[in-house]
Amino acid sequence: MRRRAILGYGAAGVGAVALMLFVGWWQVDGPGGPEPVGQRPVALTEMDFRLTDHEGNAVGPETLIGRPTMAFFGFTYCPDVCPTTLSDISEWLDDLGDEAEEMNVVFITVDPERDTVETMAEYVGYFHPAIRGWTGPEEQIARVADSFRATYERVPTESGDYTMNHSASVFLFAASGRFVTMIDYHEPREFAVPKIRRALEEEMEGAT
């Protein structure tokens, strides 16, 4: 009787310790832990989302695997940052010449409410032909942004409209889907093309 009670207390104690360990893990390293700021995007192979490109094709992370990828977020109602980024990218692609044809270049909207497939088609048409425009349901856009550790936020403007704050970096992935590096918005242009070449070279290494 007494032994059973001791055993019972012992089991309860072990249980309590296990629970404490679990709670500790949950809060520090587990799903309950704080999201580290400025974390790197996960590999494309670990992403899971369904979007539609500007030609109406169903696309997802698997669409990008096999070729190096340059991806960035924006929206077509963006007057400053997005056309600038798209023009910068168009110029980098011109500099890369034939090499650019080996890359995926994807512009993902953070404003699917206004950026329909047709809107994206018209918009990307003004820039380098390699640039694809991706849109989709709000919850899928949220999943993409989450995997990229990118953020976006809808902000009302004085004109009664709204604008979007969003991550403006350009993300580079190797052909394997592995994240290579990113090009920050204010980074000098001359750093961009070598970074893109690095992502392209990883593809070559992977192929040999």
Binding site: V37, G38, D80, V81, P83, T84, T151, V155, E158, T163, N165, H166, S167, A168, S169, M182, D184, Y185, H186
Partner: peptide, 29 residues
């Protein structure tokens, strides 16, 4: 403005004072 996390946002700039001999550039970004 683009913050340390690479997130760009836009807001009214208010009044812009330009000192003698100085210039202000309105440029992308």
């Amino acid at each position: 403005k683009t913050n340390a996390e690479g997130v760009s946002s836009m807001s009214p700039a208010g009044e812009i004072a330009i000192a003698p001999g100085e210039s202000v550039a309105l440029e992308p970004g």
